[in-house]
């Protein structure tokens, strides 16, 4: 079942459609995300498994001979809506599905760092602060004042740039409204090819409703992610439908 067909659970159901045919894998979203959310620059020990990556871009290789050779897959928290795997497992309500926006919230200040949510997440969208985040001397001046840096020993993840939602909410409140409407997360703003469309799945006139046929990764798990993808390339659809990786009998390039 597509996220577009579901009945509304929350007043807003923010989500994304990412056009994989437009993504060139430049990584602007990755850096913009890190800068926006006060992610510290990688220390020497940091790699793709122990760093803080709220948004990652995976490189996918076309296993079939036809079509484009490579696709780049930006992946952040998929904001699962049904049986959200990380929400049910957290022992102390540090993870919740927001009642207003449908965003899966992660509260670093409540988190005790058990990492159960990380094992529960099928998309590996969560990062753990293995050590204290640190910036070179003086670089604290470049921290975003609307985002609290996380401390060591807690899990963090994409929250659709909550600080920007807050700013939109504040601006709306000046005019007596609580509804922030559509705002722009950092990755959406940074994407040079406009591959990411951000919107509200509840809005029948919105950008997401007009995004045409979309698919999600690991739909079989039934978690109804609100971040969905679009592509005209068949091999990507086929790959997304298949759960679990099969070991390559031999390397994919012959």
């Amino acid at each position: 079942m597509s996220a577009t067909q579901k009945t509304s659970r929350t007043p807003r159901r923010y989500g994304m459609v990412i056009d994989l045919d437009r993504c060139t894998g430049c990584g602007a979203c990755v850096i913009a995300c890190a800068a926006e959310n006060n992610v510290a620059p990688g220390a020497a020990r940091e790699n793709d498994r122990n760093s803080i990556s709220l948004l990652r871009v995976f490189t996918l290789n076309n296993p079939t001979a036809a079509g484009r050779r490579t696709a780049f897959l930006p992946m952040m928290c998929m904001q699962c809506e049904h049986e959200t795997p990380c929400v049910t497992v957290c022992p102390q309500q540090a993870v919740e599905l927001d009642v207003l926006s449908g965003i899966v919230e992660q509260m670093p200040q409540r988190c005790l760092g058990c990492r159960y949510c990380m094992t529960a997440c099928p998309y590996h969208a969560r990062s753990f602060n293995w050590g204290d985040p640190s910036w070179p001397a003086g670089m604290e001046a470049t921290l975003n004042p609307a985002v609290a840096p996380r401390m060591r020993g807690v899990v963090e993840k994409c929250d659709f740039c909550q600080s920007r939602l807050h700013a939109a909410q504040d601006a709306a409140a000046v005019n007596g409204s609580l509804d922030p409407g559509i705002y722009t997360p950092a990755c959406v703003e940074a994407c040079p090819t406009q591959a990411i469309t951000f919107g509200d799945w509840n809005d029948p006139e919105g950008a997401l409703a007009k995004s045409g046929e979309t698919f999600a990764w690991l739909e079989g798990l039934g978690t109804q992610p609100k971040v969905r993808y679009r592509s005209g390339q068949n091999w990507l659809h086929e790959m997304a439908e298949r759960g679990g990786a099969a070991p390559a009998k031999e390397e994919r390039h012959g």
């Binding site: 309500q93 919740e96 927001d98 009642v99 207003l100 926006s101 965003i103 919230e105 509260m107 200040q109 409540r110 609307a146 985002v147 609290a148 929250d159 909550q162 600080s163 939602l165 807050h166």
Partner: peptide, 10 residues
């Protein structure tokens, strides 16, 4: 009025 966690946290 409920604000959720992220309504009041950042």
């Amino acid at each position: 009025v409920s604000a959720g966690c992220l309504g009041c946290h950042r």
